[in-house]
């Protein structure tokens, strides 16, 4: 069997998502953002929501998400995406409305907007990329930076006495009455990627069913910021990030409610 025969006669088992356009993404080689973008694009397409999606991009590395996934996008000010999404969903209730935010955007400057949008049970989904660092601005300390982890603004490692503790914002979100589905996933292996895709699908479906707000955290790598190869970054994440940010569903109220 030649390669040509397989391509000619075989089935396509994987191709770039239809909604992910041909513009090359600006992300660094190996960046988790690309994987999550693919999943989001696939889920929107598979749900048949392309014409009814209004997405909100953040400030940070994903600021240009609107260049890559072919749906309507609004680009928010730093941290404010959940406020935009709240208004859009209330004004267009039959639209799929989600934000895509990083840890600096969501868990630091936008903490108030995040907590309140989630707790108002806005029927939106927040996709939260947590790589424990500010990527776009050059690798500074984030609220989720691990203790001991070195960044440009904690070059000797994060210390409690100087910088306080890493923020468990997803655990906090799970405590809020307004949240329906809160989960923490990763995209470092095929299995993890498949689980994350299911989580995004579930969150989007709950938000369309009016079950409340949904938060999908994706523990991610920033190999440039962490100064590691993509492969090593994945290993470092497994060994260090997962110990602090445990993977799995923190809350799923969607199953019980009708």
């Amino acid at each position: 069997m030649t390669r040509e025969e397989i391509i000619e006669k075989g089935q396509v088992v994987y191709k770039k998502p239809t909604l992910l356009n041909d513009v090359p993404m600006h992300y660094c080689p190996g960046c988790s953002h690309g994987v999550v973008h693919k999943l989001v694009a696939d889920v929107i397409d598979e749900m048949g929501m392309t014409e009814k999606t209004i997405a909100i991009s953040p400030v940070g590395c994903a600021v240009f998400a609107y260049k890559y996934i072919d749906v309507d996008w609004q680009e928010a000010a730093h941290g404010r995406a959940p406020a935009l999404a709240s208004a859009v969903k209330r004004l267009w209730p039959d639209r799929l409305v989600f934000t895509y935010q990083g840890d600096g955007d969501l868990a630091c400057i936008g903490t108030a907007e995040t907590i309140h949008a989630l707790n108002r049970a806005e029927n939106i989904t927040i996709i939260f990329i947590n790589n424990a660092i500010y990527g776009m601005t050059g690798g500074q300390m984030a609220p989720t930076t691990l203790l001991g982890m070195k960044t440009a603004t904690c070059p000797y490692g994060r210390e409690v006495s100087l910088h306080g503790y890493p923020l468990h914002i997803t655990e906090l979100a799970a405590q809020l009455d307004g949240t329906c589905y809160v989960t923490r996933q990763a995209v470092h292996t095929v299995a993890a990627i498949n689980r994350t895709k299911k989580a995004i699908r579930k969150a989007f479906e709950y938000s369309m069913q009016g079950k409340g707000s949904n938060l999908v955290e994706v523990v991610s790598t920033c190999n440039s910021g962490w100064k590691m190869s993509p492969e090593k970054a994945n290993k470092w994440m497994e060994e260090n990030m997962f110990a602090y940010y445990h993977l799995g569903d923190l809350k799923d109220n969607g199953i019980d409610s009708k």
């Binding site: 006669k9 089935q11 088992v13 994987y14 191709k15 992300y27 080689p29 690309g34 693919k38 292996t189």
Partner: peptide, 25 residues
Amino acid sequence: LADTCTGCASCATVCPDGCITVYRL
């Protein structure tokens, strides 16, 4: 090692840039 490929699509799934198309027969 083209001959050994089974078309499992692991490579394409993890590719952050959607560069890989996988065929299976």
